[in-house]
Amino acid sequence: MLKVKPVRKQSFIMYFRGNWALYLLSVPGLIYIVGYKILPLIGLQLAFKNFDLFAGNGILDSIFKSKWVGLDHFEKIFRSSNFSHLLGNTLTISLMKLAVNFPLPILLALMLNEVQSRVFTRVTQTLVYMPHFLSWVIIHGIFMTLLSANGFVNRALGAAGLAEIGFYTNPSVFRWLLVLTESWKESGWGAIVYLAALTSIDEELYDAAYVDGAGYFKRLIHVTLPGIVPIVSLMLLLRLGGILGAGHEQILVMYNPTVYSTADVLSTYIYRIGIGKLDFSTATALGLFESMVGFILMVSANRISRKFLGRSLW
């Protein structure tokens, strides 16, 4: 799809001479990445050490002087009695969220895009993105007044002679509560990036489609969707990288002991049991594990995407 001209044989020096500005533009970002992101990666060695903050002279020295313990911290994580169960919960919740909360913002953006009244669009857009600004503690408070045993919904169900629903105490219902509260919080915010992509679609393409007599769905399939495919696939790819982060903060705020069986995920378990508390090493090890899984997934997804869709992030 790109008209790559046969300039491949050009020597790098020649290329650089013509395109030095591109390298110059890249410099600030690279300095930042190397300085603030790569250098601190020396902290990752803590995952293989027993970190003692006071082992050396100052923290940096302490990082280096702490004792190596090999894979002990990883073993502690993998050997915890219910590791596979926790991993299962993590993946299930993550995939449920992916299935529901990935398409929702796209759908919302498409709906908003169809609105012709400018005032209506602006007001609606502003309103739907507001829940993003509420913290999970607040959202939990709101939903609890609605959905607890004494809550509004269950009282209404009771009045109608229906069975009560244990939104917070029924283990399988609770997972959906996690998914849907996240939909409510993040869909509007997530739609912004798609809306920006939709506004960038060339109007001429629509006009041409009209001239060809294309109906609504034809325009949707042939103009609108292809216009946002790049951003959609990017978002999917980025989401895969965080597959093991099933929503630590949200779960920690919302769950309770009656739903541990389905809602306890790796990070919440480690937090709750206190292995990760004040234990920088275990926390680092868990983070490293999550990163590696995310990285492998992203690299494979990128490869698959390049092979089958001819499109890739890098």
């Binding site: 607890s148 045993a149 004494n150």
Partner: peptide
């Protein structure tokens, strides 16, 4: 006891 016992917090 309160049926919402497991999810009560200071505010509720």
């Amino acid at each position: 006891l309160d049926p919402d016992l497991p999810i009560n917090n200071a505010t509720t």
